[in-house]
Design a protein around this nucleic acid. Structure first.
Lengths: 188, 188
DNA sequence: AAATTATCGCACTGATCGCTGCGTTAGTGG
DNA sequence: CCACTAACGCAGCGATCAGTGCGATAATTT
């Protein structure tokens, strides 16, 4: 409603505040328990007045959602290795490395706990990237894979290990996972 | 430290308070956002004085961990269907049904967000059950499977769907997952 | 049955959170 | 360069949270 009347102002200061707040959230989650992640605490760490946070984000849930969406959305274009196998190996290894970082993991946990939509914000972009890889294979003349099924078998175990087990998966493990998955496709 | 001098007292009242508090946590998580899950709020819902919660649990993180451990630990013995396939199908379908419940999901999200050990508390017992099923197959003379790998392929996609996607998996989908997994084992 | 002690309820205090007007600063368009 | 307005800082106000002695209750032991 009235989307033309609200002039968004992404200029210097707003962007700077936003970046400082995002960094503060990441830092606090990295060093302390999620319990202490309150708006005044984030404001103090970011060197920003608490009022700003109450106005722009309103609650820690919305703030976390914003941070997570921003953090887990990269314009990264997966390099074309020429084959589906190569593309998936490289991509999933990168994802595994990213998820293995304790700080990243802390952000994911907090975001998941902030609400029902929290989990989606963490993997939304990964789904998009996986879809792009599969689409590329299809354009190459290869088989057409279901994105959902591929996500279940590739992202599923990866994120499961990260969130539900004491130690996350490695990049090598991710590559093995891709090989196993593709082998399954050939035999079925 | 002096573990023999502190007599644990699981008698009537303590157990009653504990049950009321656990129920209150589940109720509040089911109907409200996780943000409002504070110790006084839980106490009010449970009809218990807040002081009791501060003394026995100390923080919402520890309380959630206790509730989750209790909730996701059932002495349920998986019925012996005679085959690994049957055992797994039945068991994973039950797990899927359990995880598909919105209230259960809310408890899981909150527990994950409460700390690094939160996720483990949710699946610890599932791992134990899976191990028991695999051990039974081995005793039957069947193949010896790695529990970790089986968990990756079975629990992984299931919990991934539940936590990271808008709608969780169904029992039928879980059964299909078991079939696919066992087929993979035969061809490798 | 009486003594013991773990556990809970009550009253109370400081600290902090969530939030709201109001003035000021700094990007944006003419 | 100037007007305009979105965004931020400041001061301050309830409300609630986290935590602490102290007495009462009830489970356990002797």
């Amino acid at each position: 409603m009235a989307e033309s009347s609200t002039h968004v102002r992404p200029g210097g200061r707003s962007a700077k505040v936003r970046a400082a707040v995002h960094r503060a959230v990441a830092e606090l989650l990295a060093e302390e328990e999620a319990e202490t992640l309150t708006l005044p605490a984030v404001a103090a760490r970011a060197g920003v007045h608490p009022t700003t946070l109450y106005r722009r984000w309103g609650s820690t849930a919305q703030l976390l959602n914003d941070v997570a969406t921003s953090r887990f959305t990269d314009d990264l274009v997966v390099p074309d290795s020429g084959s589906l196998d190569g593309d998936l190996q490289r991509w999933l290894a990168d994802v595994a490395t990213d998820v293995a970082d304790p700080d990243t993991l802390a952000l994911m946990r907090a975001t998941i706990g902030s609400g029902p939509a929290g989990g989606c914000a963490c993997v939304e972009d990964r789904h998009r990237q996986l879809g792009a890889i599969i689409q590329r294979e299809q354009d190459r003349g290869g088989q057409a894979l279901a994105v959902e099924t591929a996500a279940d078998f590739l992202l599923g175990p990866l994120y499961y290990r990260a969130v539900f087990t004491p130690e996350p998966a490695s990049a090598d493990w991710a590559r093995t996972l891709v090989s196993t998955y593709l082998a399954t496709l050939r035999t079925s």
